[in-house]
Simulated scan of single mutants.
Amino acid sequence: MKICTHCGASNLDANKFCTECGTALEPLSTPKGGTAAPSAPFVPITKPLSESERIAYGLSNSLKSRLQQFQGKRSADIMFVLDCTGSMGGEIEAIKDAIMDFADTIESDGVRVRVGLVEFRDRLIQEEHRVLTFNGEPFTSDPVAFRNEVAKLRAGGGGDEPESSLDAILLALRQPFTQQGSKVIVLVTDAPPHIPDLETKSINSVVQAIRDVGVQQLYLVIRTQDPNSQVYLKLLEGARGMAFELGKGDDFRQRAEDFKRTLMALGKTISQATR
C-alpha cells in the first residue's frame, strides 16, 4: 500500500494520486538488491482495526466479499465533454494520466463506473465534435482502454474564443446511458459557449434537454470567475451538481497537475452523490 504523506490515507500500489485528497503519491522504493518494497507496511496492532483498515491490510476476506456484493448495487455512466482546442493540452494530459486513479476512487466507494468522452472545438468553423468509441461503444468500464483513446487526442484549433460546448453537451445527452444507474455529465472547458450554435438555440433549451434525459449529476470544470463563462452555471438548473475552478495561466505542467487534483476531488463527489 502507498500511504499519502499529506492526509495519511491508504492507497493501492498502482495509484499515482491519493484517492482522498488528490496529492501525488511517492513511488514505492526498491531497496538495494532489486527486491521491491513490501506491498503493505508493517502495522503494529495496538487497537481493533476499522473495517476499512482491515480491508486495506487484507485481514478480512468476508469483508472483501461484502464489498464486492455491494459494488453491484450502484453504478454510474460518466461522460466527459472535453474542450480540445489549443489551450487545453494540460487538461488532456491530466485525464490521460489520472483516469485510472479517478476510476479507482469511485469504485473503491462501491460504485461500478463506465466512462466516455466527447471532444469538441468550434463547429462554426467546421470543427466537428466527436464521441470516442471503445469496440464500437461510447462507454467503457476499462480505464486502460479509455486512457489509450484519450492519448490519441491532440489540442488544436478553436478559432475565436467561444466554442461549441453546448452542442457537445447535446451530443453527449444522446448517448446510451445506463437505465439503472446515475447519468453523469462532466464539462471541461476554458472558453464560453457559442449561443446560438449549429444546434443550440438558447441556454434554456440545453437545460431542458438535460432534464428530459434525466441526468442526475452535472459538473462544470470552467473558469468560474470569467463573466463570459458564468452562463454555464445556468445548466445546474437541469441537474444536481456543482462547478469546479479550471485554473488559470499558461503553464502546461501546472495546469495538468491542478486538473489531476480536481479529477480526484470530482471522483469523490461523484461516488458520494451516486445512489
Rank of each mutant, 00 (worst) to 15 (best):
Q216K: 15
G72T: 05
H194K: 01
L63H: 05
L153Q: 08
G157D: 09
V215K: 11
Q272V: 10
M242S: 07
Q208L: 06
S182N: 14
G8R: 00
F17A: 04
R123T: 15
V150G: 06
A94R: 03
E237R: 12
T105K: 08
R74P: 02
F17M: 10
S165Q: 06
A209P: 00
R253F: 03
L28Q: 12
C21Q: 00
G181S: 10
G247Q: 05
K64M: 15
S10F: 10
A243S: 15
A103H: 03
L218Q: 12
S10E: 01
L166M: 12
P48L: 06
I203F: 05
R130M: 10
T140M: 08
E51I: 04
V213R: 14
F102Q: 09
P44T: 10
S205Y: 01
F80L: 15
E91D: 08
S87K: 06
R275H: 08
M88K: 05
F252L: 14
G238M: 06
L266T: 12
V115F: 13
L233A: 11
G247W: 01
K73C: 01
A14P: 00
A168C: 09
E119R: 15
E137M: 13
V188E: 04
P162Q: 08
P143E: 07
L82I: 03
M1V: 05
K152F: 02
L233G: 04
D251E: 11
R275T: 12
A103F: 01
Q68H: 09
D197P: 01
A191Y: 06
D104E: 11
G86S: 14
K96P: 02
Q126F: 09
D13E: 13
V118I: 15
P38K: 13
D13H: 05
T274D: 04
A37E: 14
G214R: 13
R130H: 14
F17I: 04
F134I: 13
F252P: 08
S75W: 00
G249F: 09
D122G: 10
A172F: 08
T30N: 07
Q179L: 15
K183C: 07
E53N: 01
V144L: 08
A239Q: 07
R261W: 03
D258S: 13
T46L: 03
P176V: 05
D226N: 14
R223V: 11
C21W: 00
L198M: 01
